[in-house]
Amino acid sequence: MAKMKIKAKAKGDIVKVKAMFTSLMADTEEAEKKKIKVEYITQIVAKHNGNVVFEVSTSGFMAENPLFKFQFKGGKKGEKIEFTTTDNNGKIETGKKKIK
């Protein structure tokens, strides 16, 4: 199952990005309540041409399947944006999407 949904659109030289990540975002307290395993994304990094354009540290404070929106300058249509997420268990996932 793909773990992330990405959408990137260029308008002029500004690229608007939306991304949703599949994660229960359950910290210890919540996982105990819901009787599920502890699983949450700790870091999300977005790279464009090797440059970091977005980086965020997250934890259980975010809702399940968190959605991010941001924009950055200097992207062009056809180029790629690459996301890397790390979760609390050290699991790393990556996802790529062409900028439209």
Partner: peptide, 20 residues
Amino acid sequence: HGEFGAGGHGYPALSGGNQE
């Protein structure tokens, strides 16, 4: 229905939940 069908504002989610 929210971005990517995630639901919201009292309207049903169209995606989500995994199919395992």
